[in-house]
């Protein structure tokens, strides 16, 4: 049976996050031929609707309100429930982002439904679909089925490939007016600590440093390499604990879980705590002076050497390729 699916798109600094397109691709599988309705909430999101359609949504509904400028669970919850009542979908797909993690359990609880969080792959389609998600910090996986009723999943960024953008697609972008009231949380300040541009959890390339980076200044070559590759810089807990960088960069069991196409671990020994956050990356490169370092066990390619020699050489080599 085909399902009507709603997908919550997510904007960041005026543009849709990639995970929104990945969620649409996931919704296609869930829908089994059913209609896909994109949702966008914010203070000015109407213009982003078309983009969701080009990536596979059939139509888009927006809710715009000054109180939706910043995400709050009450504000977005009210917007979602208003659209839900209007559309009565059979399935819901969110991104498993900070927003999705915060909002999805509230909505699931309101709707008395199950919720399969942090899905990294979908097998089968429609009613037969099985959802794969990592457990035990990525050391094992489980296959989960929804027993009955409303299906609700959130998808981990960077795992389900988006559909190819099709500029010829068109569809209706309509808006619903919702009175957003009684917000119990008021956001008084937002401090952006993340490095400019590329979001660590969505980055296709991550260059991460550990204790071997030795100082805050030691991250400079890593940043240069990351910028060159259009990626983001990350760090091990050791580097954060030693104050070489902000905890917002930490990758691991505590910290962020990343699954980029390329993960470069520089001066990271490979403690289990760290591996939990990156071991599912597609290609792993390890650079470490210690040939016995654990990180070499999960690395696809390893160089035993000083990162301060290796990384600048890598930058030069990659520049040569890029200019050719």
């Amino acid at each position: 049976m085909s399902k009507k699916v709603v997908v919550l798109g997510e904007a960041r600094e005026g543009a849709l996050r990639n995970v929104s397109f990945e969620a649409i691709a996931a919704a296609k599988k869930v829908a089994g031929g059913g209609e896909i309705v994109g949702l966008l909430f914010g203070d000015a999101v109407q213009s982003l609707g078309e983009e969701m359609i080009k990536y596979g949504a059939d139509r888009v509904i927006t809710v715009e309100h000054p109180h939706l400028k910043h995400y709050t669970s009450d504000g977005f919850g009210q917007a979602f429930m208003a659209v839900y009542e209007q559309e009565k979908p059979e399935a819901i797909v969110f991104g498993h982002t900070a927003l999705g993690k915060d909002l999805s359990p509230k909505i699931a609880s309101k709707l008395d439904s199950g919720l399969v969080s942090d899905v990294t792959a979908i097998e089968g389609e429609g009613d037969d679909a099985v959802y794969i998600r990592p457990i035990y910090s990525g050391k094992a996986f489980e296959k989960v089925k929804n027993k009955e009723g409303l299906l609700f999943i959130s998808v981990r960024p960077n795992n389900i490939a988006p559909l190819e953008k099709d500029d010829s697609r068109s569809g209706d972008v309509s808006s619903v007016s919702v009175d957003i009231t009684n917000l119990r949380s008021v956001i008084s300040e937002v401090v952006r600590k993340s490095t400019e541009g590329v979001d660590l959890s969505e980055a296709k390339v991550v260059v991460a440093g550990g204790r071997g980076v030795k100082s805050a200044e030691g991250f400079a070559p890593l940043e240069e390499l990351a910028n060159l590759l259009g990626g983001a810089v990350g760090a091990s807990r050791g580097a954060c604990d030693a104050d070489y960088c902000d905890y917002s960069l930490q990758i691991g069991q505590t910290g962020k879980v990343v699954t980029p196409d390329l993960y470069i671990a520089a001066g990271i020994s490979g403690a289990i705590q760290h591996m939990a956050g990156m071991s599912n990356s597609k290609v792993i490169v390890a650079i470490n002076k210690d040939p016995e370092a654990n990180i070499f066990k999960v690395a696809d390619y390893g160089i035993v050497g000083d990162l301060f020699e290796v990384i600048p050489m890598m930058i030069e080599e990659i520049k040569k390729i890029k200019t050719n």
Binding site: I135, E142, K147, E148, A299, G302
Partner: peptide, 21 residues
């Protein structure tokens, strides 16, 4: 009663040993 059910738990495929250059 649970709304979802786990039908299988498995370990990720063992990664072949990488190449140290």
């Amino acid at each position: 009663e649970a709304k979802t059910e786990t039908i299988e738990v498995y370990l990720p495929p063992q990664k072949a040993a990488g190449r140290v250059l």
